[in-house]
Nucleic acid binder design. Structure first.
Ligand SMILES: [Mn+2]
Ligand SMILES: [Mn+2]
Ligand SMILES: [Mn+2]
Ligand SMILES: [Mn+2]
Lengths: 218, 218
DNA sequence: TTAATTTTTTAGACTTATCTAAATTTTTTA
DNA sequence: TAAAAAATTTAGATAAGTCTAAAAAATTAA
């Protein structure tokens, strides 16, 4: 069994671990968990004690198989609940993250399985993030972002890298929702902004926005 | 704001307070909260500090308006989630209590309102218990139990006083689900058991069962 | 390659919720 | 109404998770 706090630490380690480095630093964890480095050191020692992480002093931590299972399971619950909130309770995609942060810690395997069935076995959450299956398998294929596209390339928006409500609201206002087909009309060297065509209308998009939108061709 | 633990204490005080006494004792709380009397004493002092309860040493506690609001709000959430689990996720009525014990602590007013709407504003939970409305109003009218009926009286089962899964499973096996019309055919002085007619079939029911089934005439 | 800076850990303290054992108060019994 | 029993509170500890301040280690810069 794992607590609310432990699940949040494991999830954070998972997310940082997938940003490239194989050892996640104390400081980076402290930052995304809104806590202090000294608290993180204490906590990761306890997680190592329970065999959820490997901990090397002054180097960092990474997940054991046991820790990975909990982290992915928690993310699976988070994303399934987000689908429920948006598709069944009519929440907007920028309103669900905080609530899902609580719901993800409800522990009942049966509940998750039935929720998943009720929702029709969704593959992605409202932000385009893949939902791990019951065995912990996760699809990973969102490698390109809008700013990677060349002039005249066409693509479809499939996800967001940044999840801040303000960003999601911006996308909604500018018709840049998931599933939208876009074409790059122009790119500017100066500030890396680009002009995209959305439903026949041209729009200027900043680099800040373009690098946070996942796209696929066709 | 109130924590998981505080909400459980307030809910317990509410339930015990509605069993007659105006002051709820330390020991009775310790029993239903599966904790020790000394822990309860510590906790109720903190609750009094926050103005959730009135506390009189050696006498007991009762809820303030603030405490009552939290208690009823928590019960409201619990029962709405139970409806969701049974009606939407196809859980059986004896499987939902433990999960609802966790879900009831998710704090988002918006979530509760939308869940209630999604469920079609149910008035009762799967065990026949009334769901408090958004203003904290609760319907209370389950005064009679099966054992109160006289011979030849007819009634409909509308709720259970005991919520143990084993009792609920017993009722299911014996066709004594909510909404069932029954008629008392005989009553035995000796052990207070009674014979009831259910869908044309006669069944013997123990006093233990009969006193835990809420009924209404007509 | 020493000095300065940054990162990480340790030490000691605090809060919440719990426990056991002992003390105190209330209730019951004789 | 005094003694016995039961209920309740207090005292002192513990575990989880957090903090600040200080020490130690690692990294970067001169
Ligand atoms: Mn989210
Ligand atoms: Mn999401
Ligand atoms: Mn219940
Ligand atoms: Mn119920």
């Amino acid at each position: 069994m794992s607590t609310f706090t432990e699940e949040n630490y494991l999830k954070a380690i998972y997310k940082l671990g997938h940003r490239g480095e194989d050892w996640v630093s104390t400081n980076s964890l402290a930052e995304i968990l809104n806590t202090k480095a000294s608290s993180v050191t204490d906590m990761v020692k306890k997680l190592a004690e329970k065999d959820f992480v490997n901990y090397k002093p002054y180097t960092g931590v990474n997940l054991t198989a046991k820790g990975l299972e909990i982290a992915v399971g928690t993310i699976r619950k988070h994303r399934l609940w987000e689908v429920f909130l948006v598709e069944r309770l009519d929440f907007k995609w920028d309103e669900v993250h905080e609530i899902a942060e609580e719901l993800e810690h409800i522990n009942s395997d049966e509940l998750v399985l039935r929720l998943e069935k009720f929702l029709g076995y969704p593959k992605y959450d409202p932000h385009g993030d893949p939902i791990p299956d019951r065995n912990g398998k996760v699809l990973h294929h969102k490698n390109r972002v809008l700013s990677d596209l060349k002039i005249n390339e066409e693509a479809i928006i499939v996800g967001v890298k940044e999840h801040a409500p303000s960003f999601l609201q911006y996308l909604e206002k500018h018709n840049l929702l998931l599933g939208t087909r876009i074409k790059v009309r122009n790119k500017f060297e100066f500030d890396h902004s680009l002009v995209v065509e959305v439903k026949g209308i041209e729009n200027t998009v900043s680099h800040q926005v373009a690098k946070n939108l996942y796209v696929v061709n066709e």
